[in-house]
Amino acid sequence: MLVRNRFLAALAALALGATVLATPAHAAVSRAELALRWAPIHHQDVDATGSHALGGRSDYLTAIDFDGNLDGRDNWDRAATAALPAHAYYSVVETSTHWYLTYLFFHPRDWTDHPFFETEHENDGEGVLLAIERDGSTYGVLRGAVTVAHSDFYSYTPAGSTWTSGRESVDGTLQLQASPHDAFTHPVTAQEAQGHGLKAFPQYAINCDGLIHYPSTVAEEPAGGNDRDVRYKVVDIFAAGGLWAQRANASLFASLGTFAGDTSGGCGSGTWGCSANSANAPWGWDDGNDLPGRGELASDPAKLVAEYFTIPGGVSRAYTYNPYADAAAALKEAARTAPPTVD
């Protein structure tokens, strides 16, 4: 009997061990999950005045291939007729201490209804960098943000952040808000109408009509210019065949990091003018008055945040994942020789 009991106990132990071995360890969060979790709740002011506004549709954010192609020189024209479902593009760059998430919000038109002193251009790309400390929790903790408003960068920290002003002064507090579409609080960003400069909410705010976008895996087109619940789809810049893979596509880019755009379709009509090739992807963003070089907000974000903020303990500058680094030399050479853009 004693032998039989020991045999049964051994079988039970083996069964228990098999059960434990069959239960997988908790998987690390994917980059897609990380980008979706931290993607901003995004306010977009809308102006419906003037023929270039398309009744407000010119302020809808959308996919770069919203018209079914990757030709950057027909987007101004086709914005009048094509559907404009909401999208945003993200990239994730990693070090041992931080995740850096860059988000690009794209509009087919940078437009104006003023007849003097302001220019228009085809395509518009502005966005935000979020710095997430890897503190051992699943999604980390948000420490700071830098936004792109035309040719200037603005820095922000959320309440309670350990980061403070560095070489650049912190420009305000980054608010967080709960989303009705998931269980998380998200940073809140906002873009102005027409020129689409991007800052932390409420430094830009909806004046009358406007859209409020929530991150999602689906893309919704606004029901109109005053829709306060629009889901936008987050899309990986580094996806196979995605935006980064298209960086040498001459139909989409006039040069490295600069979208191709021409003056057709009425751009500049009744205004000061229309400029060509004037919008930038993240690896072309630049604040010429600040130390980090062109594109480094996306390609070398650890360098940028070390300049913009005072960070207790500092940050690692050794990247464990950074596809932008594969073209670092080309980016630096392009930054050295590139003409200035107006976005």
Results as ranks from 00 to 15, higher is better:
4 R>Y: 14
5 N>F: 08
7 F>Q: 10
9 A>K: 02
11 L>T: 05
11 L>V: 14
21 L>S: 03
26 H>P: 00
35 A>V: 06
38 W>Q: 02
41 I>R: 02
43 H>W: 05
45 D>L: 02
46 V>L: 12
49 T>M: 10
50 G>L: 11
51 S>C: 02
54 L>A: 06
55 G>F: 12
58 S>W: 09
63 A>N: 13
69 N>Y: 04
81 T>V: 14
82 A>Q: 13
86 A>Q: 03
87 H>L: 03
88 A>R: 06
90 Y>M: 10
91 S>C: 11
94 E>D: 15
95 T>V: 07
98 H>F: 15
107 H>Q: 14
110 D>G: 01
115 P>R: 02
122 E>Q: 14
127 G>E: 10
131 A>C: 10
134 R>M: 07
141 V>H: 11
145 A>S: 12
154 Y>Q: 06
159 A>L: 14
167 R>I: 11
169 S>Y: 05
170 V>R: 04
173 T>A: 09
181 H>Y: 13
182 D>Y: 02
184 F>G: 01
184 F>V: 00
188 V>G: 01
193 A>W: 01
202 P>E: 09
205 A>D: 15
209 D>G: 12
217 T>H: 06
217 T>R: 11
221 E>K: 05
224 G>R: 06
224 G>L: 08
234 V>Y: 04
238 F>K: 06
240 A>I: 05
241 G>N: 08
244 W>L: 12
246 Q>A: 15
246 Q>T: 11
249 N>V: 13
253 F>I: 08
257 G>R: 10
259 F>E: 00
262 D>Q: 04
267 C>L: 12
276 A>R: 12
277 N>W: 02
277 N>E: 06
277 N>I: 01
278 S>N: 14
281 A>K: 02
281 A>T: 10
287 D>Y: 03
295 G>V: 05
306 A>V: 00
307 E>C: 00
318 A>D: 15
331 L>Y: 15
334 A>P: 11
335 A>D: 09
336 R>G: 15
